[in-house]
């Protein structure tokens, strides 16, 4: 029964975070100099008092703040994130159109990061202090220190410009009009460079975390018990060490998701991946504030949903969840 109450609490938390994100957004809007009316007027090219006034009335900007907040909250709750200044389309529609590409890229990067990171971490933890361990540590420190966007550009320079192995831009070959499997293969090839670039930083984190967790768990008493039972080293490593060491990684995946999305904005831009990240860049350059804010809200909600998922996974992986954390 306690696992259910744990999940219930996390569910409530997710809802609260969403509400907080929307509240924060409402105050961010008021941070920007000038209100929607001035911006609209600026774009329309003229600004006489009467027009501004009618605009303000139309957008409800002449009403008291709590009323505006309530309207904003109800609007967002119904999926109305406002209109994009530049595209003259509902913000949500613009974002939803690009969202699948971003999710695809991020999911791929996450898989590569976890898979690679866990493997490298296990490799390093096998002989702490050895040359192999040291090289994993040095590499991971290097990937921590490299700006992701620059790493992407360098990868592009090497693998696309110099070696010509992989396509540098976009999600698929322009004008090729592949269908079916050929299209999937085309997209996959395009995804390699941005995906791996995005993954490397997180792979470094995972490698370090796995290494630490493996070494820590290997020193625990229950591993000694396992050896005292005379079971094989493989079983000791798999059932006892790895199973315990992987639990913190589940929670970590949730926490990393937020950073992953930030990295995705940069990497998408470098590789012209038509996702939410490039959209954010366009919003910045065209000063399309409602769109930028909409992207923040949508990505924040998605990341908190992903965290909910990892919390549930954690509650299944660790029976001690009922002890409460």
């Amino acid at each position: 029964m306690n696992r259910l109450s744990y999940i219930g609490a996390r569910l409530v938390k997710t809802v609260l975070i969403t509400v907080a994100v929307v509240l924060l957004s409402f105050f961010l809007i008021r941070l920007a100099p000038g209100d929607t009316a001035t911006v609209m007027a600026g774009q329309a090219g003229f600004a006489d008092e009467a027009f501004m006034k009618s605009l303000r009335a139309e957008y409800g900007l002449d009403q008291p703040v709590p009323v505006q907040l309530w309207k904003y909250l109800t609007a967002v709750a119904q999926g109305d994130l406002g209109m994009s200044f530049v595209r003259r389309q509902p913000v949500l529609d613009v974002i939803l159109e690009r969202l699948p590409n971003t999710m695809l890229l991020n999911a791929f990067a996450l898989l590569v990061a976890i898979g690679g990171g866990v493997l490298f971490g296990m490799f390093a933890a096998r002989r702490p202090g050895s040359a192999g361990d040291a090289s994993v540590t040095v590499l991971s420190m290097l990937f921590y220190a490299v700006p992701q966007f620059w790493l992407g550009m360098m990868a592009m320079l090497v693998f696309s410009v110099w070696l010509g192995w992989l396509p540098p831009f976009g999600i698929e070959t322009m004008g090729a009009d592949y269908t079916g499997l050929a299209r999937i293969a085309d997209i996959a090839v395009h995804m390699i460079l941005p995906g791996v670039t995005l993954a490397l930083y997180f792979m470094a984190s995972y490698a370090r975390l796995t290494r630490t967790a493996m070494i820590e768990v290997a020193d625990q008493d229950f591993v000694k018990t396992a050896r005292a039972k005379g079971i094989s080293e493989g079983q000791v490593a798999h059932r006892h060490i790895l199973r315990n060491a992987l639990i913190p990684l589940v929670t970590f995946a949730g926490l990393q998701a937020a950073i992953l999305v930030g990295g995705s904005v940069l990497v998408e831009n470098v590789f012209s991946w038509p996702g939410v990240g490039t959209l954010a860049y366009e919003a910045v350059t065209t000063r399309d504030n409602p769109l930028l804010l909409g992207i923040f809200i949508v990505t924040a909600v998605l990341v908190s949903l992903f965290n909910l998922a990892t919390d549930i996974a954690y509650s299944i992986a660790d029976p001690r969840v009922e002890l409460g954390r």
Binding site: T225, R227, G230, S232, R239, N244, I247
Partner: peptide, 22 residues
């Protein structure tokens, strides 16, 4: 390894730490 557990077995000080929690 074959000897351990079969011919010689061991118990430890803190049974909470000596059992795998998961």
């Amino acid at each position: 390894r074959k000897l351990r557990g079969r011919d010689i077995a061991m118990i430890f000080q803190d049974p909470m730490a000596a059992l795998n929690p998961v």
